[in-house]
Design a binder for these strands. Structure first.
Lengths: 136, 136
DNA sequence: ATTGCTGCAAACTGTTTGCACTTGA
DNA sequence: TCAAGTGCAAACAGTTTGCAGCAAT
């Protein structure tokens, strides 16, 4: 079931604005900020307002359709949750982000459960460090 | 060498304000927000200003004496870096934070280096999920 | 005596909110 | 039709900045 279908099936109205936010979110290869979504939206519909973007993102988060990642640069970014089977390696020097598969975190997840009884929800993880290029 | 000694040895002035920020940072059991530091500072010195807190934290970060962690609740928290040999498990239900030792992350660190050539700097890590109490 | 640091006030950024109008179902 | 959703403007919180005066070295 697509993102927009979920909205509709739960009784939320499928407004053009919401569709545009969902589209922007999905068309973004990786993560995208509220402002970037807003920009894309305005290209199609100049009267768009950023508060609508925030309200829609809030809704999508509640429904589990979107997730946010915060790498601490003051910009919260969002991504669609279906293809959220990855995490981020953030280079503190060049700022580049790399994907990290979920599988690679399974051992850690298990050890957290075993040692702490903690059920980790690995959906927002960002690990900081130096990428191979910046290590020289 | 203590935090204040490092400041002095690098030619930075050891002002009472800076000492108070450093003290607050060290006296905090775990992580502390700029605002909390400011509050503690004002108890001793009511004329303190929060911009000084931010400027001092910025300096301490640059010198590697402090690190910030951002769990995405809109509040950036800081901690002294010497005793930063731990990470955080953040319960998304009750909000409690638990410490996680560095050792537990060594396997992951190694696999990131091996598979991605990424030199992870595990100083700011926060892992979200449900604590044992909230899993029922 | 310098010049780095502070306090103040004002600006700035990202986000949220109240309200009247609009529109999807 | 009519509640849900939008646009607008204003409020908000956390943070940053320019500048004049102060104080650590």
């Amino acid at each position: 079931m697509s993102c927009t279908q979920v909205l509709q099936s739960k009784g939320y109205r499928l407004t053009p604005q919401r569709v545009m936010v969902v589209d922007a979110l999905h068309s973004a290869k990786r993560h995208i900020s509220a402002d970037e979504i807003f920009e894309r939206m305005r290209e199609k519909y100049p009267y768009a307002n950023i508060s609508t973007v925030y309200r829609t993102l809030e809704l999508l988060k509640e429904l589990g359709l979107a997730a946010e990642i915060n790498i601490g640069d003051g910009i919260v970014r969002y991504h669609a949750r279906e293809n959220s089977g990855h995490h981020h390696l953030v280079c503190t020097k060049c700022g580049k982000m790399f994907d990290l598969s979920v599988e690679e975190l399974v051992p850690l997840e298990k050890s957290l459960a075993r040692n702490h009884g903690f059920k980790a929800d690995m959906h927002h993880l960002a690990i900081f460090g130096l990428c191979s290029g910046c290590q020289r």
